[in-house]
Design a protein around this nucleic acid. Sequence first.
DNA 1: TAACGGACCGGAAACGATTCCGGCCGTGTG
DNA 2: CACACGGCCGGAATCGTTTCCGGTCCGTTA
Lengths: 336, 336
Amino acid sequence: MTIKDIARLSGCGVATVSRVLNDHPDVSEKTRRKVMAVVNEHGFQPNNNAKHLKQQAGTSIAILVKGTQNMLFADLVEQIQTLLRDNHRDAAVYYLDEDADEVAYAIQLCRERKPVGILFLGGDLEYFRASFRHLSAPCVLLTNCARELDFDNLSSLTTDDEQAAFQAIGYLIGKGHRQIGVLGGNWSTSQISYQRLQGCKRAFEHWGLPFEPQRQTEPSRYSMADAYAATRRLLERCPELTAIFAMSDVIAVGVIRALGDLGKRVPQDISVIGYDGISMGRYTIPRLTTIGQDTKRLAEQGVELLLEQILHGGKGVHQVVPFRLLDGESVAQRTT
Amino acid sequence: MTIKDIARLSGCGVATVSRVLNDHPDVSEKTRRKVMAVVNEHGFQPNNNAKHLKQQAGTSIAILVKGTQNMLFADLVEQIQTLLRDNHRDAAVYYLDEDADEVAYAIQLCRERKPVGILFLGGDLEYFRASFRHLSAPCVLLTNCARELDFDNLSSLTTDDEQAAFQAIGYLIGKGHRQIGVLGGNWSTSQISYQRLQGCKRAFEHWGLPFEPQRQTEPSRYSMADAYAATRRLLERCPELTAIFAMSDVIAVGVIRALGDLGKRVPQDISVIGYDGISMGRYTIPRLTTIGQDTKRLAEQGVELLLEQILHGGKGVHQVVPFRLLDGESVAQRTT
DNA sequence: TAACGGACCGGAAACGATTCCGGCCGTGTG
DNA sequence: CACACGGCCGGAATCGTTTCCGGTCCGTTA
């Protein structure tokens, strides 16, 4: 069933049918109705491949997400989805493995699918520089730092990871903690983790605490399972810890579970502060105290930025969105 | 940059270039190398729209997911993704709102994108019957019942919800509980919830307990937030409850948090059994006792079924996959 | 009445690939 | 030597749209 069939059945030319289908003004009401009748009767659906081939452009937006288990991204995707739908666009989500070379895969994917715009959640940009030039669609990076990347159609929206980590540690110190452990991603390959670690270092320095490398540990992925295992090793190594900074809420959940299994109560025996502010954090026991990323703003501004670039082009921007420390129940004042 | 340019630059015909690009045998090694050199030099990427237009078929698989927050689907998507990648296929995930009319939207989406196969996670099939005939791609339904739907290219893989709910209630009764509350989805619109409720009813009957309608309540969505609110209302209405069956683990998390806020300890004061067996359930406090769906098998069999249908066609099948009660820490023996 | 303009429509040329079909060339066979 | 055959290649048709370019018809104006 093609547009040609519709034309034949409704007794007019293909051009007219196309015009009807695309709400072009140059068509009389009578013809429009006649054509639509045939279209509806046969449930005709124009072929998108032909359409996009002719128009030299797709219509959909790709959301690239690193890892399926990070609830932060689930929260973001939900909000983005809603916003896009309000703008009458729909998005396809592509999940990438958490392994580094997935950026190359992502680029490849986008070149094939030819989305009209790209949102990238998480993921590190090691390889981006090399392959990004192959991408023509505008791209907005959320929650990952791209300040040193400078392409015309690349924007980024990111929390100030260094400063946030600084504050997280500062918060723990303010609560009287001195023996603080840190759990995060791979610091050598992940910009995000690296930035957060820098913030930690600066905090320790600022408050005159020594930086103890054995207290900083890196589960390979941002997952509960890895965090769980890493926590057990960490506590074995450093039983003196009274607080832990988990570089993501998902990690924090694994940490808290591990601590429970080690007979430590959170926050009475040991405090945990997370990072991200996932919605789930308000339903865990104890509720997570965490660095809350402003997901609402990330989503809104991200979508706005992307749509703006899609519609009007222009140079990409790099913006920092504020964070906010969210009070929960996982950090206690240390009185001793 | 088109195939024609490549042909010109490499001094041969477009047909030859196409053959090289598609590993067609009828091309000499010398020509192949010559063409590939030009292709690589310019980073040429064939236009998928033209390709698919000509071939009358897309290549990608669509995964439709109802709701972004259900971790069960996150677990499933992760496994499916891996399996598909092993088969050199990639998948686009489309999230649907949890509202009922999204099925129509899903169908529309699939008609536009023309995926070569469809996986449907969650979602109810009220409208499916009417609109399914417009879909040409084979479709596999996971975790939702489709036994009464009978299309050639529609398969389904589902846990026996009725039986599983029966066992969940049976388990609680076996632990000495007699005052049992139930929290689930919308029983009139959701087949899944309806089936599970039927299982509950049968269990109550089987063990000679009265069915108390005021103890069965339905948060509108499978979300922590709704479950939280519903639990508070439920406990206010029925303070005598000693156990709750949550029809999903996500709901269970919300339930447990609400109980905590009401000063009830889980499982000492009140027991909670969940449903799904999400990986997160092993990291909550307390760990969830739950009806574990076999996500590994759902994913494997689902993908296998779909690929089989894509490659060889044939009639769809409807299979039931076994479940297993997963022991956690959220259900206690009732001694009184 | 002739000229003109606007509303509406149809034919046909793209878009960029795949693939059928026929042609060329070199080698082996009768 | 003639011919067949197989390996390799190129031209051109084709997929289903959009859109440019004109053409018809009718009402208005000089």
